[in-house]
Nucleic acid binder design. Structure first.
Lengths: 151, 151
DNA sequence: CTCGATGCAAAAATTTTGCAAATGT
DNA sequence: ACATTTGCAAAATTTTTGCATCGAG
């Protein structure tokens, strides 16, 4: 389909793993995702289609997509990992009142992270930073508890 | 016992919650912890004593200790939260080979985080940053997979 | 007294796994 | 052909909950 598709195929090929219809379906569904998604969500979405993919296969495939650098575990919500495609890296703020997620990126922070790693001789592969707090809107209303999960 | 103890008592008092023998035992065990610990570990440690504390109580108490700012969820390992006492805040590097944990603190990063929050009108309460990668030792041996979990 | 806390076991919820059958290369 | 993958259901794990009883204030 696109170069991402090839990236996954190449990864699997390199590891002598197979390219199956299920993996293709999961991949397509992942590529179709706009923001964050979790395993259970994928299972549900893949239920609709003509061919179906079992829960076990989804759970077995996500780590593979992660290994090949297509997705990452972004943060944890309600006991499950929220995944997201790796495009531009960014970090998250999570509002504990309304559940809103704000994405941000601060180049200087990224740079400093690398610097610290270097100082410890640590080779960074992935990092995750999440700030929990209260978003602007919930501070205003101070009644944010009733809100749903605004985009 | 010490001012931490009082901190927890005051918090509970303010919320009209009770100070029980079990909470005291859990608190003592938490204060006795050097580094990271998880719920199951506490349950095990509290088994030994004369009075025992049920698993449910431990699971119900940890969030309370968190609310009052005594501990925080540091990172997730093997499907459970690793807690730690909040003293000086710091972040973590996790070696995916040997499991080693390196703690670090970069004031400039902390400052930038606050700055970003400010920019979004976000009121930060807690944050967590974890860098996964390969530690110096595992890079050297390149055989780190067999290692246990060095302190 | 009264309401919160505890303990137990059962329940939830998520993720993993064993195994036979199916499929990719 | 042969090793990998799938699906299913069962299992393993971690965490939560219902409910009767207990205990703090």
């Amino acid at each position: 389909m696109d170069e991402t598709d090839d990236g996954v195929r190449n990864y699997l090929y390199g590891k002598k793993l197979q390219w199956t219809a299920q993996r293709e379906l999961i991949l397509q569904e992942v590529l179709r995702s706009r923001g964050h998604f979790d395993a259970e969500e994928l299972v549900a979405r893949l239920r609709g289609g003509s061919r179906k993919v079992s829960r076990a296969t989804v759970y077995r495939t996500l780590p593979r997509l992660r290994e090949c650098g297509l997705i990452r575990e972004a943060f944890r919500r309600d006991g499950r990992w929220q995944y997201e495609r790796i495009r531009g890296h960014h970090d998250h703020m999570l509002c504990i009142r309304c559940g809103r997620i704000i994405e941000f990126k601060e180049d200087e922070i990224e740079r400093l992270q690398d610097e610290v790693c270097c100082r410890y001789g640590f080779k960074p592969l992935e990092h995750r930073m999440g700030i929990q707090g209260i978003c602007r809107e919930c501070q205003r209303t101070d009644e944010g508890a009733e809100n749903g999960h605004p985009a």
